[in-house]
Amino acid sequence: MKPLTVICGYLGSGKTTLINHILKSTSFPIGILVNDFGELNIDKYLIENEDELTISLTNGCVCCNLNDDLGDSLNFMLSQKVKAVILESSGVALPVKMSNYGTSWPGYKLSKLLTVVEGRTLKQLLSDKFVSKTVKSQIIQSDLIYINRYNDFDLELLSSMNPVYKKEEELDALLENIFIETDTVGEILPFVEEHNSLKTEVLLFDGPINQEDILNFLDANPGIERLKGWISDSENQSWLVQVTRSERDFTVSKYQTTSRLVVIYKKDLNKKILYK
């Protein structure tokens, strides 16, 4: 049985950042399922999964959607070599409900139920007219709470809900907990990278973008840590673009797509070159 870890948390709480931490810190292949309601599909591109086993899903209720994307993807992951699967839930998913996939889907068992909260915005969310109950339930129903931006955080807020919580410094301990009690625990590497100052932006384009535009853009922006996405050039050829600090890679893509890029960068971003 494959262990399934469920990660919940409202929009912007840092679920994707946490998943990237986990991916960097583990040495065995992990499958990622992103359930994002068909909203702007950024999370999928942000997840830096080298095995490329990230599947993005749309959400629906059975009475209006008989195709269960999530079920299909869980079955697909069973056929893959991944040792564990992480399910990144949509911002309003309830942990108890999502955990059902861990306890009910044949071939899986629930590993951990985790909610990410963001220190600066939690207080406001807990009094929001529409999502306060959802956010509170996300906290109460989880096995573990991971607190992003711990320094901005008022612990009093959680005291009434009595969760087991972890702050950023305790990430190593958290990682140990994530895959605990599974028969596939791999080696867990310590978390080293510092992510706090990184920003992310998604760039969408109407017209064609050529390789040289991207190269000029990179040269003008030494603060870019990573860039990933697709471009369609003036000859209507699509390319998959993958850029890290050490590599700039363009591969022909057979998918006809509109140009869109996810950029992870420090400080500022000068986009003028791309939007001339």
């Binding site: 929009l11 909203e39 209720c61 309003v92 959802t134």
Partner: peptide, 11 residues
């Protein structure tokens, strides 16, 4: 028991 959102309110 709680209801569900089919779309995230701010979205």
């Amino acid at each position: 028991h709680e209801g569900e959102w089919l779309t995230i309110p701010e979205q």
